[in-house]
Design a protein around this nucleic acid. Structure first.
Lengths: 272, 272
DNA sequence: AACCCGGTTCCGATATGTGAAACCTCTGGA
DNA sequence: TCCAGAGGTTTCACATATCGGAACCGGGTT
């Protein structure tokens, strides 16, 4: 499971970001030694990189325990990232509406180098513990949103994306090879809707529709998800028209919208 | 070596991050020229930095318009940052409960170098939404959460924090100088609750309570906010016990909790 | 055609980052 | 008490990645 051909090795910056990722990926505060363990960099180099990142506020160093964790500056930056990504803020009101209408969990996702990145979410009135959160990533080949987006990818990119799937068999219905997937994608393309028939998690089903941008490019996908024991397949199917409408509404807004024009806004480069 | 003496000038990494911030702060896709305008770096240098950041996935470059915007990798990283910050994930269930009980907007914030960083939020009506609001920053001296945290800061840090407030008079009730603030903070300290009496926005009032960590250190603050025209002051006051309980619950969980132990988890440093 | 402007590339000088190794400073044996 | 080892920090001579002035491109405008 790798990501783009982002060689961690372009420049010092690349290395620093790789370290940052490593800390983030650890999922909990990590010690220097633990990082060194898996790091291709020599002790001193890693140490210096960490120092820099801490001094930059990208990492927090707990001085007592000697552990590193992602810093708050990251959260601040991410807010901007989210707020100005073209898709998420525009889709927001439509997700609210969709969520209110159907009362089930809804997701908004984007494709990020072969994987699915969830960028927004509304919980069902009756919440079920699920693995997804905004900012989380998941597989594309066995999720509704993933397949919805793959289906509308131009051939060369599809090729690349398929090559990066792990094809791990999560459940009995998981599609586990590119050929079967291409068949499935053709169906999705004609229907305009993708279904996850418990392909990722047993007991969890979902329907998803793509959001297309200018030139028919996929920008993302919306989905409605629910536990199979509470929602019979037919009930989920019944939501399809509403789901499609939400996707289309977002698509339309996306086309009409342009960033509010030219406010002269300055940013301080130097911090006292 | 603590507070924000984050010179944009330690190493290439520092510069790169400054550029990243600049793009994020712009709030919309920016052109090379616009960045160059405000940048202390020469054309070629800025160009190279941007190139690196794009190749790293920290920035997106729209090739048609030639504009840069924050990349998805940032969102991914930020999710980890949020998920493993000591405060936010632990506080989450308590915010849910508080929100459900009082039915008003609630906030969770942390102090980030003199400013208030909102890390979670529940809206009065709508269900959970994540990065839409989390990640925003606000002033400390005229918000409930801000004052609640300032009140429990040890003297040297308080000094530093007060020195960084802008003391802009937003409304008639805004406290606009450090001396008056110190008086206010003393009251808050004895009461255990901070009040925002429309000091930031007219028509918006709030009550806030601090979340303390080991050794009495402030870790954050929780607040209940509402429009004065819908919620009379007395009604807000009535929520104080519930608010305090929420803050205390979080404080307790915070003390008891430790990261789930030692799962050997590896991270790919090199991407093919 | 001449000009300008935003963006991209070159290339030598040098500031920067590199990493092996030495050096701390605990902590837990013996 | 002393030793051994692990985890973390600092040093320093060396290589190279970074810097930035200047030249270059391409396409709009006068």
């Amino acid at each position: 499971m790798n990501v783009e051909n982002r060689q961690s090795g372009d420049g010092t910056v690349g290395k620093a970001l790789a370290v940052l990722d490593a800390v983030a990926a650890a999922g909990r505060p990590v010690r220097f030694a633990a990082l060194l363990e898996d790091s291709p960099y020599p002790k001193a180099t890693l140490y210096r990189l960490l120092q820099t990142l801490v001094s930059q506020g990208m990492l927090d160093l707990d001085p007592d325990r000697g552990t590193y964790s992602p810093g708050l500056r990251l959260v601040r930056m991410a807010h901007s990232a989210w707020a100005q990504s073209s898709l998420a803020p525009i889709a927001r009101p439509h997700l609210d509406a969709l969520s209110a209408d159907v009362g089930e969990t809804v997701h908004l996702a984007q494709l990020d180098g072969g994987a699915v990145l969830y960028v927004d979410k509304r919980n069902a009135a009756r919440p079920v513990q699920m693995y997804s959160e905004a900012g989380k990533v998941g597989p594309a080949y066995c999720t509704g949103v993933g397949k919805a987006m793959l289906a509308f990818l131009p051939e060369p990119e599809l090729e690349a994306a398929l090559a990066r799937q792990s094809w791990h068999r999560f459940t009995g219905t998981t599609i586990t090879d590119p050929d079967a997937m291409r068949v499935e994608l053709a169906t999705i393309r004609t229907e305009g809707v993708a279904r996850d028939r418990q392909e990722h998690e047993p007991g969890i089903a979902c329907i998803a529709a793509p959001v297309l941008g200018p030139g028919g490019r996929v920008q993302g996908a919306v989905s409605i998800t629910g536990p199979t024991d509470r929602i019979p397949a037919a009930a989920l199917e019944a939501h399809i028209p509403r789901l499609r409408r939400a996707a289309d509404d977002i698509t339309r807004d996306l086309r009409d919208w342009r960033f509010p024009d030219e406010r002269e806004e300055r940013h301080d480069w130097r911090h006292a």
